[in-house]
């Protein structure tokens, strides 16, 4: 009896572990009918459920755009809220198809984690927020401060580097959940809260009892290019996610928005004709419908629209996240 049970266990284990390799991500996504997208547990402007439980944010828009490109339906997404610590394991293990969770692109992550960063959907940098009443005006004055930070982030490492480089000391209070760590800061447990400037603006705008009581110091101590991530070794899926991101940028550059793209289906501009799939077969090259980019813009909008609806209301400025044609860093390779 026991022997038979053991054999059965072996068989199940063998079956379970051999299925890991079998399918490409695109086939798996198509057969289950939705994109499983890893997002933040709640960062206003990037990914956060609204009052009706619908996820909103530019990372969420990246997920919806992928679904629009693959299925022609931006609603075919399921979200997995992940903490900073869970995110890579969730992607590595195949629990999610793509990670769009304000994740910084670094060489270690790109090479040793078995992951690929597809591009950048927000150029960020790390900053410090302090209560106004402390009277601090520069990060250089923070020697000896107690600093709230989330673990498992590049933030934690940059912080240590910055203080070492400037021969200052600090006491970290390391709490995993964003909600708990911001509570610790707002209750005065820490003098300083540090994360990406976008995170500071969003936290101040959405969680501070009185946003005006907190200032963000002028120093930006790191480069934090945030972008979606996929697993190593599935180039087709990598291409789809990457070009979906580029399509949103290209649309803004071409002046295509969710409102006017319908009329542009009949445009005579060859770039637009290629973009909406009226000519050429770019979609087929990506194993997608030829109107993939049209669907993305029609249902989700271009990058600028996504920025305006999600980030601008919180007080974000376009800054370096503007198109290259407007003096920013956002640049998509040609879609042709």
């Amino acid at each position: 009896m026991k022997v038979r049970l053991a054999v059965a266990v072996c068989a199940v284990a063998a079956f379970a572990s051999s299925t890991l390799h079998a399918q490409s991500t695109l086939d798996a996504v198509k057969s289950k009918g939705y994109v499983q997208c890893g997002v933040n547990t709640g960062l206003a402007g990037f990914s956060q459920p609204d009052s009706r439980g619908a996820w909103k944010g530019i990372d969420v828009d990246a997920c919806r755009a992928i679904a629009a490109a693959v299925f022609g339906d931006a609603t075919k997404v399921r979200y997995t809220p992940l903490t900073a610590q869970q995110r890579f394991t969730a992607l590595q293990s195949g629990e999610i198809d793509v990670l769009a969770r304000n994740t910084t692109w670094t060489v270690t992550r790109d090479t040793s984690l078995g992951l690929n960063f597809v591009g950048v959907n927000y150029y960020d940098g790390q900053g410090f927020m302090v209560p106004k009443k402390l009277g601090v005006t520069s990060a250089k004055q923070l020697n000896g401060a107690t600093i709230c930070v989330q673990p498992g982030t590049t933030t934690e490492l940059n912080l240590a580097d910055y203080f070492r480089a400037n021969k200052m000391s600090f006491k970290p209070v390391v709490i995993e959940k964003l909600e708990e760590v911001t509570n610790a800061y707002f209750s005065g447990r820490c003098d300083v809260f540090t994360t990406d400037v976008s995170g500071l603006v969003s936290t101040r705008g959405s969680r501070a009892p009185k946003p005006a009581d907190h200032v963000i110091l002028p120093e930006v101590i790191s480069k934090e290019p945030l972008g979606p991530v996929v697993r190593h070794g599935d180039d087709r899926w990598y291409d789809i996610v990457k070009w979906t991101l580029f399509a949103m940028l290209e649309a803004e550059e071409l002046g295509l928005t969710s409102k006017n793209i319908e009329q542009n289906l009949t445009s005579t501009n060859p770039s637009i004709q290629r973009f909406v799939g009226a000519t050429g077969d770019i979609g087929k090259m990506m194993s997608l419908d030829n109107r993939w980019a049209y669907n993305v813009v029609k249902q989700v909008g271009n990058y600028g629209e996504s920025f305006e609806t999600n980030l601008a209301p919180l007080g974000f400025e376009r800054g370096i996240n503007n198109l290259w044609t407007n003096g920013g860093l956002m640049y998509a390779p040609p879609i042709r």
């Binding site: 610590q85 982030t153 934690e156 995993e176």
Partner: peptide, 23 residues
């Protein structure tokens, strides 16, 4: 301890895992 930010073994091992990716 992880939940309230006391740096115990699990908290530090978690951070280590996340920085190195070696879960």
């Amino acid at each position: 301890a992880v939940a309230i930010g006391y740096p115990d073994l699990v908290s530090i091992a978690n951070t280590t895992m996340n920085q190195t990716g070696q879960a």
